[in-house]
Design a protein around this nucleic acid. Structure first.
Length: 225
DNA sequence: TAGGCCATCTGGTCCT
DNA sequence: AGGACCAGATGGCCTA
């Protein structure tokens, strides 16, 4: 059991360290972009259906269709419409101005939704133990989710081991074990911990074994095939 | 220069 | 009808 525990920790640490190592090599990325580049400048105002200012990174695209109602952007909007061909029947029913206004409103809502999603991801990054540092590139979205999943599984495993230890100690004192003997099954899942499966496998297989996504993080692994 | 990551736009679908 | 959610497309920035 202790072996399993150490394997799980190793796997988790390997995952986070390999990512950090990769990130440290390219710290300019995080430094240049920052965690929230483009957020303040393009967030719509309160109650804002109004068009957002163009974000620095996606300036051309954002300016093209979500920016102010300049003539250039209207032209861009029309170009985009022409490129996509005739719209659905719903488009034909609306007047162009009204249609454009509705589109901008929908775009702003979607932007807000994605910002909320990113805020939640930032919150998740904040509680995942990995090297939080201004000089280290922040975790990608997929890495954040996979790391969080593995961290949860690792914690569940640690808790399970702790319960077994308590039960063992209680037995030693002649007490009935107050702990359930059922294996811990977080969120109703089977008590299968992915860390052990790939402990002796080469990198791609090991990454696949404990991440469930063979290609998502393997590129960050130090054991390149 | 290719590939990774990201933000944004957009149309479709489902729900209230 | 309007909002939330989703997935595809597009284009920019960055790194190896």
């Amino acid at each position: 059991m202790a072996e399993l525990q150490s394997l799980s920790e190793d796997a988790y640490l390997a995952l986070s360290h390999s990512y950090v190592a990769a990130a440290a090599a390219g710290l300019a990325y995080g430094a240049a972009r920052g965690p929230d580049v483009g957020r303040d400048c393009c967030a719509p105002g309160p109650g804002g259906d109004g068009p957002a200012a163009p974000a620095p990174r996606a300036a051309p695209a954002a300016a093209e269709s979500s920016g102010e109602q300049s003539g250039d952007e209207d032209d861009a909007f029309e170009r985009r419409r022409r490129r996509r061909g005739p719209g659905p029947a719903g488009d034909a029913r609306r007047r162009p101005r009204e249609q454009r206004s509705l589109r901008l409103s929908i775009n702003a809502r979607e932007r807000r939704r994605m910002h909320d999603l990113n805020d939640a991801l930032d919150g998740l990054r904040a509680v995942i133990p990995y090297a939080h540092s201004p000089s280290v590139r922040k975790l990608s979205k997929i890495a954040t989710l996979l790391l969080a999943k593995n961290y949860i599984l690792m914690q569940a495993q640690a808790l399970d081991e702790m319960r077994r230890l308590v039960a063992y100690l209680n037995q030693g004192q002649g007490l009935a074990a107050p702990v359930t003997t059922a294996p811990l099954t977080p969120f109703g899942q089977a008590a299968v911990y992915p860390f052990s499966a790939g402990a002796s496998l080469p990198c791609p297989d090991k990454c696949a074994a404990f991440s469930g996504a063979p290609s998502a993080l393997c590129k960050h692994c130090t054991e390149k095939p």
